[in-house]
Amino acid sequence: MTLATEPSVTEPAPPEGADGADTGAPSIGGAPMTNFDAPETPGGRSRTRVVVGHLTLAVLGLACIFPIYWLYATSLRRPNDVYEVNPLPWPLSVDSYRTAIDEIDVLRLLLNTTVVAVLTALGQLLTSLLAAYAFAAWNFPLKRLLYLAFVGSWLVPFQVAMLPNYVLLHQLGLLNTLSGVIVPNIVSGLGVLLLRQHLDGFPKELLEAARMDGRSSWSTLWTVVVPNLRAALAALGILLLVNAWNEYFWPALVLQRHNDVLQLGIRSFMSSTEGDDWGPLTATAGLACLPIFVIYLVLQRHVVSGFVRSGLR
């Protein structure tokens, strides 16, 4: 025989050599497999836990979805059936939608609402981005105080600022206009707050690298910061858009009797004398919800990743 080498893992000692058999090179083949069916009880316990967890989540999920389902179910019943409690609306009918479209100019309202919501959200996004960038990238006098002012504007209840804003709009002649709805909401304290959190986690060296590479701070914002903040911006944008879309009270105040946005259009089916007209009301509400659902479905990935992923890397 030649010189014996130490038994290695890749080349087990040949079984026919007497010495090799004694050293008993570990058989790697079968050993780990035996461990697989060992932990039986822990697996069973965790399964019940999983089932209970899923059940709880399912119940909560149903509780969230049910009112929305009921809204659409009611809107699809025949006008005489709106007080039915049968969970399945049958026979189906789009009469309520027809009534809604006949009585109020749903398309115009939809357009107006879209304009208001999109402009408000975009404006808020832009101002938040600029403010948050300033807070995160520079030190300047009164920085903390200014930041607190932003946070404060978010904490102050709407009702407190409502009347002064209303008076100001009146003086500016913006009452009963869509601009009157949009302009006072162009800055969002919440947006500044959230974006600053994101930007504080933004690697400072990237900003410095851009400076060394010759970019101005404005160009750095658009070529370095924004592309890397897309997820956060998308998430915040959707949040702001949904908020703006669902706004009811402020448009009601500014637009007074004009039913210029969908949310106010719903009002016209509410009546204290004849009782609410549930069919068209739910139909309009259902229409008002649709764009948000669509946006959410399209951008879902961004929304989730924006909230889950905190930073860049």
């Binding site: 690697p203 060296e205 690298a209 851009a210 060394m212 590479d213 010759g214 970019r215 592309p227 890397r313």
Partner: peptide
């Protein structure tokens, strides 16, 4: 004088590569 007018280039400890750009665009950025 601002950094960009000093004709100096810097390599950072963290490298500070732009995560959203390809290698070619990173190098071409300046």
């Amino acid at each position: 004088t601002p950094a960009r007018d000093r004709d100096l280039a810097m390599v950072f400890q963290s490298y500070a590569l732009y995560p959203h750009l390809t290698v070619a665009r990173n190098i071409g950025f300046p």
